[in-house]
Design a protein around this nucleic acid. Structure first.
Lengths: 253, 253
DNA sequence: GCCGGCAATTAACATGCGTTAATGGCCCTT
DNA sequence: AAGGGCCATTAACGCATGTTAATTGCCGGC
């Protein structure tokens, strides 16, 4: 299915923080355990359960979701290939959220202890994983801004910009297209809208000629327009490096 | 003003993850640099600026805020005494958000390099700080759920529960009371409501006899009722230890 | 080739919350 | 004592989005 070793896309991501040495890359690769195939809607980790291993999405999609006692749902993250399922669990004894497969998903696993010892030998890997966690936090905050301040149209546009950009970072886009197997119910639970309004809003985006989304395929016809409609700035997806290098040049010359 | 060393409340917080040894505590205490007094609305850190030191709120309140190009504002965090201003900056070369003082605030500073070397000597401190960051992430996600899924009344009730609980953790409550110098405009930017509706909602909470909030003082008259109205569960404020132990009992017993 | 179920679509109607704007209280300044 | 600014409060009205519910299309199973 997926070409190359299962860590390919993770390494791609970590390189965004700091390129790993061949030695470090090899260590990480060799720490990866067996993969497992999940079916749609199957749980990868369940809230409160202790986790002996850290999942790595190799292919397919997953999401993290919070459910209120009366059934209201809020999806708080999407996980795409190259994402770790819950690096938090390296530090915490149990998972804090339930993560479920959105589609069929192939998930490799790092045994917790093995990964911990790799980190001990290669502190940069620990830092890189920590950086990944910070990135997730940035995304969570941006979602808060999205749901809190943007209109339905902007909100949807912003989500599509974000996901597309993340897919690009792991080389899963093809021109302006990428896979995006989200149902309108899931979009609604992500954007804090009703499904009816998601439908209206999607059609509006289509009518404007910006994007189309159907049968699991996202096509962006005019990214610039979409981005400016959404007030999307990709900065938060690259905390650190690029942003700073730009700035560094300002300081000593 | 504030009794004892400036790290008192931080240590109180970190102990929630893992009690630090006297040696570790002393190292951390000795790493703290000079304090600075900020005036209301003054910026502690500005987005994108490299930061040579990590702030620690000793007294007063601060907030992190994201502003959209057209002026819409979303407050994404409140910082209370004992909170680090941006531990992220240990890893990242620049701040990712602007943090501003809400009230007059006394902020101690850890020189970045000094703190890094303390962590090197005491890995547990690094872990504890990392745990603090995870906690912040948990809070961010909970705010997303709050703004996305709860009604105005529930939302406000939830925020008050959270802040009160956090204040309790650093021993800044007195019975059902604590300081909370939030204006209705700030509440609005936090909860993604209009100020008018915040006003209506606050009155409703008062009318129900649950809380009163005026001249910077929060009084909770019936925490249990408030908590159940808000569907507030303090679990997310204690990621890790306690949660798991409770669960463990359910399994074999 | 029919049936069942899920996802998308549409329409009609309802409402929680936003907007605008006016008023009053408080505190600080002069 | 008068003036100005910030904040809280209130009222009237409007709108973005929710709700309910019916319809359609699609796909897989039998």
């Amino acid at each position: 299915m997926s070409p190359g070793p299962s860590t390919t896309r993770l390494l791609l991501r970590l390189g965004d923080f700091a390129p790993l040495s061949p030695d470090e890359s090899r260590s990480l690769e060799s720490a990866v355990g067996p993969a497992r195939l999940y079916r749609p809607h199957e749980d990868l980790t369940r809230e409160g359960e202790p986790a002996a291993h850290i999942g790595l999405i190799v292919s397919g999609f997953a999401y993290r979701c919070r459910v209120l006692p009366d059934g209201r749902r809020q999806i708080v993250t999407y996980l795409i290939p190259g994402d770790l399922c819950d690096a938090r669990q390296l530090l915490l004894p149990a998972a804090t959220h339930t993560v479920s497969a959105l589609t069929a998903a192939n998930v490799a696993t790092f045994p917790r202890e093995t990964l911990l010892s790799v980190i001990e030998r290669h502190p940069r890997i620990g830092q890189a994983l920590c950086w990944l966690a910070l990135l997730e936090e940035q995304i969570a905050r941006e979602w808060l801004v999205n749901v809190g301040q943007r209109t339905a149209l902007e909100r949807l546009a912003h989500l599509l910009c974000e996901i597309f950009t993340r897919m690009q970072a792991v080389a899963l886009t093809d021109g302006g297209r990428c896979e995006l197997p989200l149902t309108q119910v899931e979009l609604a639970d992500t954007l804090a809208l009703s499904t009816v309004h998601v439908n209206r809003t999607l059609q509006e985006l289509r009518r404007l000629g910006l994007v189309s989304l159907s049968s699991g395929l996202l096509e962006i016809h005019d990214f610039d327009a979409l981005q400016s409609l959404a007030m999307f700035s990709p900065d938060y997806l690259h905390p650190g490096s690029q942003r700073v290098e730009r700035r560094r040049r300002l300081v000593p010359g």
